[in-house]
């Protein structure tokens, strides 16, 4: 918390410290700023050497032109449907299973839990081909099910929830049982309210992962009606490949990035919490 390696009062080191931090922050922010800036330029302004610092006139119609090329409203809707379903699915299955593993005795508990831990170590690319095959056998290709259902459980989520639920005192659960509450009611009325911060942390991570997901939708979705935001951005990318329409590409990139940035600005506390939690317990 306090200065540890610097003696206070040394003006030069303080100035140097801020100079380095500001320089770093500028580097971090610059690509975003340049993206927004050039999304308001004409393509010829973008390609001018050196490019102008700001567009002569803000080309707001880049964004309306973009809508003509790609129905961004539809992309947002698809991404929202998929992401919200995946987040709710993961939160529900993780917390309910985490509850069972933390607070119940049943034959096979250890074995099943170790199995779940083992699946945590399986990287996505190893299961990509078989899962694609299964999804195709189930006729889920080119559908919301195909995007959502394979992702509604998370071994990591179960593990995290179990850790949190283990810290809930047994007395709270027993008291609810004495009051005659059935087990699902105990889950919903006792456990869920107590693990809200953990759910928020897990939820934000799953949200970002699902919103940004690219490879799986690329494999599963063919029709434009079901495109998620990253798929739309990928289409724009190939569309702008011959250096035309760069302004539309940048406008599309702005629109694809804005939702996660807004979410992060509101929920950054949970992100930082989650990162440090997973990082230091590791």
């Amino acid at each position: 918390m306090t200065a540890t390696t610097h003696k206070p009062g040394l003006k030069l080191t303080t100035i140097l410290k801020y100079v380095i931090l500001i320089a770093g922050a500028l580097v971090m922010l610059f690509p975003f700023a340049w993206m927004v800036d050039s999304s308001f330029m004409t393509t010829s302004e973008i390609q001018r050497r050196p490019p102008p610092l700001l567009p002569a006139e803000a080309q707001v119609q880049n964004f309306s032109d973009l809508m003509g090329v790609l129905p961004f409203g539809r992309l947002y809707l698809n991404s929202a449907i998929v992401t919200v379903s995946v987040v709710l699915g993961v939160l529900f299955t993780s917390s309910v299973a985490g509850f069972a593993f933390a607070k119940y005795q049943f034959p096979g508990r250890e074995l099943l839990f170790y199995l779940i831990l083992a699946t945590m170590m399986i990287p996505f690319f190893v299961t990509l081909i078989p899962v694609f095959f299964i999804v195709r056998q189930l006729s889920w290709i080119d559908s919301y099910q195909g995007l959502i259902l394979p992702s509604i459980t998370s071994a990591y989520g179960i593990f995290l929830m179990r850790q949190f639920i283990m810290s809930i005192p047994d007395e709270l659960i027993d008291a609810a049982r004495i009051d005659g509450a059935p087990e699902p009611v105990i889950y919903w009325k006792v456990v869920v309210p107590l693990i809200r911060p953990a759910l928020a942390t897990l939820g934000t991570f799953v949200f970002i992962g699902s919103w940004n997901a690219f490879l799986w939708p690329l494999l599963v979705i063919n029709s434009r009606d079901l495109y998620t935001v990253p798929l739309g951005l990928n289409t724009l990318r190939t569309f702008a490949a011959e250096a035309r329409n760069l302004n539309l590409l940048m406008a599309g990139t702005v629109l694809s990035v804005v939702p996660t940035l807004i979410l992060f600005l509101f929920l950054q506390r949970y992100f930082i919490q989650g990162i440090t939690l997973t990082g230091l317990k590791g």
Binding site: T93, V96, L115, I116, V126, P130, T153
Partner: peptide, 17 residues
Amino acid sequence: FIAIPVIWLMIFSLGPI
């Protein structure tokens, strides 16, 4: 409680590997 997650991980993770 564990049915869906366990079945899912069998179908979409352990089985596939």
